[in-house]
């Protein structure tokens, strides 16, 4: 496949993926009348900002900054803790296959339906006085993100050739120096992919945030999104606007981080 054909093929695939997003942006700029009578069209005939004005309010900034704080902290905690754990699990010898047992337990945690975890976790959080606090929420998110990160990172760490590390050890680098200077940079693409996913998990988390937080000034974005979907119906325009607003920060972050993901390219892979 020559480069031009290749490019056209990829862009066509991308275009297909893009259609629902085009519709989301289009609907966000439709007037209520156009949403009613031309709901199927991708783009509005005239630009209307009605939905944007309806969504825009002062608390939006608090909501976004809470969500950034909580999901970013949860991601950092998870990725760091999981990085150490995964490294230990990959490299060290365990008696009695304890490492597999541990990994299996982690997997089971990941498989638990969040709803069943939520009820006992609520009692636990209540006893620890962690209800209604951002720290509590960050901790609770570990139930989702930590098992995920451990499993994600296993393969990437395993792919690092042992010789490189052994060479580092010969030079007298200790465990944490080695981790920081050799292992960490070598599995950067894996770490980046993992962080993006963990961030998304926290960013869109609804259930724990609903149950564990009740102060208006500590709420996160997903709860605000459900404002626009009530049992009386969906506010289409507003829902699309908040869909856009809430996804943009993640998009910016991912666009920035992709350079680490695609490092192979910059090194001249053909």
């Amino acid at each position: 496949m020559n480069a031009r054909v290749h490019g056209i093929v990829v862009w066509c695939c991308t275009g297909l993926f893009l259609l629902p997003i085009v519709w989301m942006f289009g609907t966000a700029f439709k007037s209520p009348n156009e949403i009613l009578n031309a709901g199927a069209s991708l783009l509005p005939t005239t630009l209307s900002f009605d939905s944007w004005l309806a969504v825009w309010q002062g608390s939006l900034f608090t909501l976004i900054s809470n969500t950034v704080l909580v999901s970013l902290s949860a991601t950092v905690v998870s990725v760091v803790v999981a990085f150490f754990a995964a490294y230990g699990l990959v490299r060290y010898r365990f008696p009695a296959k304890l490492d597999y047992l541990f990994l299996l337990l982690v997997l089971i945690i990941k498989m638990m339906p969040p709803i069943v975890v939520a009820i006992p976790l609520y009692s636990l959080m209540n006893q620890l006085s962690l209800l209604n606090s951002k720290a509590g929420l960050i901790l609770a998110y570990q139930v989702y993100t930590l098992p995920f990160c451990i499993w994600m990172l296993l393969g990437f760490i395993r792919d690092i050739p042992l010789e490189i590390e052994e060479a580092g050890a010969m030079d007298g680098a200790h465990l944490f120096r080695r981790l920081l200077h050799i292992v960490f940079p070598l599995c950067a693409p894996g770490l980046v992919a993992t962080s993006i996913f963990a961030m998304i998990l926290g960013w869109n988390e609804f259930l724990f945030s609903l149950l564990f937080i009740h102060s208006p000034d500590k709420l996160t974005i997903p709860l605000f999104i459900s404002n626009f979907m009530t049992e009386d119906g969906t506010a289409w325009g507003e829902l699309m606007v908040i869909g856009i607003i809430s996804s943009i920060p993640m998009l910016v972050l991912a666009s920035y981080m992709q350079r680490y993901l695609l490092r192979g390219f910059s090194m001249g892979l053909k």
Partner: peptide, 26 residues
């Protein structure tokens, strides 16, 4: 007075959990 606005698909669950644990939140 603090008003906690719960989503309509979540008010019931929040209330049950809170009253069951007697948190005195509301």
């Amino acid at each position: 007075v603090t008003l906690v606005k719960r989503p309509s698909k979540g008010l019931y669950e929040s209330l049950v959990l809170s009253m069951r644990e007697q948190t005195g939140n509301y």
